[in-house]
């Protein structure tokens, strides 16, 4: 599955409720008050819905930065263009 780089930024922006310029590769869980467990749950649901995948429990927990989210999604067949 091919996906625009931009889409990950958009999903993070919406799930965390933050401006898109804050979504950098090294943005990490709990580094902003907005990325708390509530927002993380929203993020997981947004990624699953958008890419049509079901994340493993371990992957939900390991998705602790934007870069990690990107590499985890690759395991599910998402390719960035």
């Amino acid at each position: 599955m091919k996906a625009e780089n931009q889409i990950l930024n958009t999903l993070f922006t919406q799930s965390l409720g933050i401006p898109s310029d804050l979504v950098t590769e090294d943005l990490a869980y709990n580094s902003l008050p907005q990325w708390d467990s509530t927002a993380h749950l929203q993020l997981v649901m947004a990624l699953e819905n958008h890419f049509g995948i079901t994340l493993e429990t371990e992957d939900m927990l390991d998705m602790s930065s934007v870069a990690k989210a990107r590499s985890i999604l690759e395991k599910y067949g998402v390719e960035w263009v």
Binding site: Y29, S37, H40, M60, L61, D62
Partner: peptide, 9 residues
């Protein structure tokens, strides 16, 4: 840790 972090579990 929160429940959304691996160390908790």
């Amino acid at each position: 840790a929160s429940m959304m972090e691996r160390p908790f579990w």
